[in-house]
């Protein structure tokens, strides 16, 4: 699990890891604060310290993101019910990243991969070339499905070992598209 700070000028020091239902220290500007994540309540509570009032930041909806090459849910935190100085700065500017299954390989620091098609569609363009070195998040090919162009990215850095499809090919779900070997 990671944190996303959408407002780049907001100086928030978030903990690397938090446990559910446990108060963890963090810092917002010069202010030391504590936070507590309650997934069952879909809320992140923020307080100044023990015995102080807790302010709830809720997430009403989660967004499934697939960029770049990594799949995760983004929980956009918001404060409902008027103005609250403590959380004003953080309102809609912070999100929790809950990684999907694909995220784990990246988290483990894996290299090289087998790029598979996430959908049924037609290959529109192939942007990578054989033996090319690719970075994590680099665009590899474009698949058209439901009248939309969907970009497929590299999840891990490596070298293109094999390209198994060409523009115009119909592909099915999970079909192997490109093999990337570790650099």
């Amino acid at each position: 699990m990671r944190w996303v700070n959408r407002k780049k000028d907001l100086d928030i020091q978030l903990p690397d890891q938090i446990s559910i239902g446990v108060w963890t220290d963090f810092r917002c500007g010069a202010e030391p604060l504590q936070l507590c994540w309650e997934p069952l309540l879909r809320t992140l509570f923020v307080r100044k310290g023990p015995g102080q009032t807790e302010v709830p930041l809720k997430y009403r909806a989660s967004v499934l993101r697939k960029f770049p090459g990594e799949m995760f849910s983004e929980l956009l935190l918001e404060y409902v019910g008027g103005q609250e100085p403590l959380t004003q700065k953080m309102h809609q500017e912070l999100a929790i990243h809950v990684p999907g299954l694909e995220g784990r390989a990246q988290a483990a620091g894996a290299k090289g991969e087998q790029v598979r098609s996430p959908m049924v569609g037609k290959v529109l363009r192939v942007l990578a070339q054989g033996s090319q070195a690719v970075e994590r998040g680099q665009e590899l090919l474009v698949i058209e499905a439901m009248k939309m162009e969907n970009k497929i990215y590299a999840r891990n850095p490596g070298v293109i070992a094999d390209i198994l499809v060409a523009p115009g090919d119909q592909v099915s779900v999970n079909q192997l598209l490109i093999k990337i070997s570790a650099p």
């Binding site: 069952l40 309540l41 102080q52 302010v55 709830p56 609250e84």
Partner: peptide, 15 residues
């Protein structure tokens, strides 16, 4: 009541 809705619904909560 740590996982009770009123803790979340209020603008502030005190344990």
């Amino acid at each position: 009541d740590a996982l009770s809705q009123h803790r979340k619904y209020a603008n502030e909560a005190i344990r």
